[in-house]
């Protein structure tokens, strides 16, 4: 199998070249998905708190806002996951150990970790949304 990272140049480019934040070689992709979860978590609390304090005792409307934000966040996480697969060569289940100390080995490892974190963050966001749908009131 060939990975795009095999053919792409490394992040040391010509002068003036700025590496993309989410691209092979950069580690930011690993924190991106958990950050989305954290943002969604905080925003959910803010929405629920403001709604309950200002508008009313019913959670039926804000839970749709929370769910809407969840859809956006999960969509972004899915995009991150595709990047982890395409640009980093990440796989869900690793069948051969990654032992080489090479750019490609590191990318594969980052891709794998990012992919797992994407899944974890998606599940965590679902766990944030579920209580709002079980409880109808503040």
């Amino acid at each position: 199998m060939r990975y795009e990272s095999d053919k792409q140049p490394s992040r040391f480019g010509p002068p003036g070249y700025a590496p993309r934040v989410i691209d092979q070689g950069s580690v930011w992709i690993m924190v991106a998905a958990p950050t989305l979860w954290a943002l969604h978590f905080v925003a959910s609390y803010v929405v629920a708190a403001v709604w309950c304090a200002r508008i009313g005792p019913s959670l039926t409307e804000p839970r749709w806002i929370i769910a809407g934000m969840a859809v956006v966040c999960v969509a972004l996480i899915v995009w991150l996951a595709t990047q982890a697969v395409r640009r980093y060569g990440g796989v869900f289940v690793i069948f051969e150990e990654i032992t080489e100390s090479s750019e490609r080995g590191r990318d594969k490892f980052i891709g794998h970790v990012s992919l797992l974190l994407c899944i974890l963050s998606g599940v965590a966001i679902a766990f944030t949304v579920i209580p709002g749908f079980v409880f109808g009131s503040c």
Partner: peptide
Amino acid sequence: PTVLVCALLIWGLVILR
């Protein structure tokens, strides 16, 4: 485990409700 924890979460929340 993810599916089980999710199911238990929902069950517990429904009892609490």
